[in-house]
Structure formats: C-alpha cells, structure tokens
Amino acid sequence: MQLIEHHPILQYQHGKKVKFIFDGQEMEGFEGEPIAAALHANGVRILSYTEKYKRPRGFFCAIGKCSSCFVVVNGIPNVRSCITPLEEGMVIETQRGHGTFHKEVQDGEH
C-alpha cells in the first residue's frame, strides 16, 4: 500500500487490517477507513466510467458532497466511496454508467 511512513507532525492510527475484493482482485485496507482511501492506497484511481462518453472518474471532494466517487459495493450501486467505511470481505466494483440494482439486492433485506 502507498502509505506515508514518516511525518514530522502526525502519527497515524490505522484500524484493523482487512481484506476486500475490488473487481475480482483481493486487496488490503484498514477497517473503518473510507473505501476511496483504501483503493487509492492500492493504486486504484478510476472508480467509475460515465454513462454516455465512458469517461473515467475518480474522487474529487472526499467529503461526500460531489458524487464523483460512486462505486458498487456488495451489489449496491452509487455508493459514495469517500465516506463509506471499509469492512472485511466487502466486494467492490467499478461502476459503469448509472448503475443497476441486482435482483438479489432488491429482494434482500436492504
């Protein structure tokens, strides 16, 4: 992971290390930290492709206000990855277009 190792002012307190899947690939991140931060630390900068022109999108504001960071999390599209905490075993996918609900999510408890 691309983490800052030494800082003159800050001491980082990371949460528990957990594994998650991004587009079929296993990655590591810290529990409770935003999904977008975990992905960036793993070198992932493209989070979605736009509907019409298929332009790549990354995050922009990182405080939940611009919707530039949508990904699909456990089948649920349009999740703001910059303010959604990472959990063990999450299955995250690049979002393409406006996103559709999988059948099982619609019928499930969500």
Binding site: L10, F30, A37, P56, F59, F60, C61, A62, I63, C82
Partner: peptide, 18 residues
C-alpha cells in the same frame, strides 16, 4: 482521475496517511 480538490488531498494524506 487525479484532479482532486485540495480538501480531498488533505483528507487522504493527513487523516488516512495515504
């Protein structure tokens, strides 16, 4: 991707150490 707001850059490096 890579055009980031200044606040986002700060969050990434100062809060999460990325």
């Amino acid at each position: 991707p890579g055009v980031y707001g200044a606040g986002a850059v700060q969050t990434l490096m100062n809060v999460y150490g990325v």
